[in-house]
Write a protein that binds this DNA or RNA. Structure first.
Lengths: 344, 344
DNA sequence: CCTCCTTGGGAAAGCGCTTACCGGGACGGT
DNA sequence: ACCGTCCCGGTAAGCGCTTTCCCAAGGAGG
């Protein structure tokens, strides 16, 4: 970068020293700059279209206003909703968001947190479910600890085992409530499109759902739990697999909405028309998918709010850390899971 | 940030000078560091878990590996698809993406480009349709020019009037092709949910569609062109408005997919069941919406590819700028626009 | 045996900014 | 009239790194 205007130029043009120029522009604390001089400096800065060098400021001040955000895949509406919340709140606090999309590559989170450390981010937010990859989690934990030791603030979403402030979605309760609701509607022959077995988010949802069924004396046979990626295609493939295993299922719980939509497509390709041939429910209540037809029963998670909350947690001062924050979901019944037995 | 390990510490531990330490770590060009020393330095760095300070490097080198990305709303799947492309390509080049979501606030783009300038971003990408706000566009143009004058590279997506490399979607041709295709299917009584009248992206799509109808001797009456925001709710409201104005329309073109989905919801709320009561088409081919029911006829735009392309354009060396890149769309017919008259 | 070149290490000058610290003038109290 | 006390400018010391310039040592060539 050449030719940028520096504070030195501004000071010279205003006929003052660097120190005065800096103080005039920052309105430095416990120090007053004479009205006339400040005026002169501001004018000079405006005339020269001066814009301060963020790196020099970072060096001199020893801190930045950068938020580092790491997530699995920005194209996934789940993560982009969280990101939107982070960015909205960050903007409100004058923070700039640097974002990394790990594409679920193992170790990428740690690498990116390292990059954020190099940039002296003041906040780092890691969102994405914990995996059962012990070593990777361990490394990430270390990196985050190092980051906080340097004075940064980290918040993890859906990774409860990390040594930092944590926001957890109450997947178990949400799925359990959903299970009860579906049972109340009269559904009985359940199956689950279970998502990736190594992700806590997925397994918790399966477990919660299972608990509800058990409570009602039902059970979830192993062949009725079909794993697969957290994607549309994952849902599609899992649904086909399920139909092959047992065509007699009548209500499917896909552990996220994106999979549920893929599953609906699979049903139609097999000539089954939801919800008539098969009831189906999802999880997350992705905004973009609220208008699929039939309307998808799901568990609403306040994703944007979670993103915003992450920023606020990071910015809290004078509190003991790490803290744990739980966010509850809320069952939303729609047309994809009609009432089976007429209500009494 | 306190306590971070500096190069100085590494040098001391390795028993060499700062210069040597730096050279050993960077493998500096046209300079060789003795094998033994390099080894010692690398070991010391590893032992101390040294991580270089990005700001200091930026200062000393006079450049960074930051990409600044400004878009309207990261929660909108259109923009998150482009962002995904940008991030994928950026990662491939070792660049870090700093992102700003302007929420369509006028002037925000300019502010953020200013922020990217302060951070000496090496690349700035601005995505979002040009508005007819003369003054805002002018200011953005100035800011981008200043950025490039300082040695940065800027690329604008869907803002053809800016003095930088530009990627334009061929909205006109896409919408025209769609119009022809719908006509070929036998549709005749058309209306358009036109999106925001101040956005070029919207007006071009309307114009292209109109051209196709005109070519076939049809026309688009003013009451059949309903403006509104580029959102789900915008589509919903516009559809209701349209039904109030003229319930006899039989095929609606919503100028983006998100609106089309909102429009479908509005139809159902009025007891109309698409595509039977009303054919409907969108634009963009948003991935998340590919499984709505009925499948939405649309014009596929390679959004991710556009994001990736933006990064590549910015990184091109030794080419004359600014360049203009056009990206074509492709009509995708699905169930939402059935054939009306039996084919002959 | 001397000179010239090559190889590789160190000292130090910045990059642009903030912020102690210092110092001179004005003011008021005694 | 003198001495603290503010007020408000300037001087300069970093922040952590890269890179130029300088220099010592060793080898090759005359």
């Amino acid at each position: 970068m050449t030719g940028s205007v520096t504070l030195h130029d501004v000071a010279r043009r205003a006929g003052v020293s660097l120190a005065t120029a800096s103080r005039a522009l920052n309105g430095s604390a416990n120090r007053v700059v004479g009205e006339e001089l400040r005026e002169r400096v501001l004018r000079a800065a405006a005339e020269l279209r001066y814009s301060p060098n963020a790196h020099a400021q970072a060096m001199a001040r020893g801190r930045t206003n950068i938020v580092g955000l790491s997530l699995h895949d920005i194209a996934d509406p789940y993560f982009s909703a969280v990101a939107a919340g982070v960015m909205r709140e960050a903007e409100a606090h004058g923070l700039l968001v640097t974002m990394a999309s790990t594409e679920r590559r193992p170790g990428a989170e740690t690498d990116y947190v390292g990059a954020f450390r190099r940039h002296w981010a003041s906040v780092v937010i890691v969102v994405g479910s914990r995996t059962d990859d012990r070593a990777a989690t361990e490394q990430l934990a270390e990196e985050l600890a190092a980051f906080e030791a340097e004075g940064g603030r980290a918040v993890a979403v859906s990774q409860p085992r990390l040594p930092v402030d944590t926001i957890s979605i109450d997947n178990h309760a949400g799925a359990r409530d959903l299970g009860h609701a579906l049972h109340d509607l009269g559904h009985r022959r359940f199956a689950v499109l279970a998502g990736p077995t190594e992700l806590l988010t997925a397994t918790e949802r399966v477990a919660g759902f299972r608990e509800a069924l058990t409570r009602h004396g039902g059970r979830l046979a192993p062949e009725h739990v079909v794993p697969g990626p957290f994607t549309r295609d994952g849902g599609y493939a899992a649904m086909r697999e399920l139909l092959d295993r047992d065509p007699d299922v009548s209500c499917v719980f896909a552990v996220n909405d994106v999979m549920a939509v893929g599953a609906m497509a699979a049903l139609r390709d097999r000539g089954i028309d939801p919800p008539t041939g098969m009831a189906i429910a999802g999880f997350d209540d992705i905004a973009t998918l609220r208008d699929v037809n039939p309307g998808l029963t799901t568990v609403r998670i306040p994703l944007e709010e979670i993103g915003a909350l992450a920023v606020r947690l990071a910015l809290d001062d004078g509190v003991a850390r790490p803290r744990v924050h739980r966010v509850a979901g809320e069952v939303v019944l729609r047309a994809s899971t009609p009432r089976l037995s007429p209500p009494r």
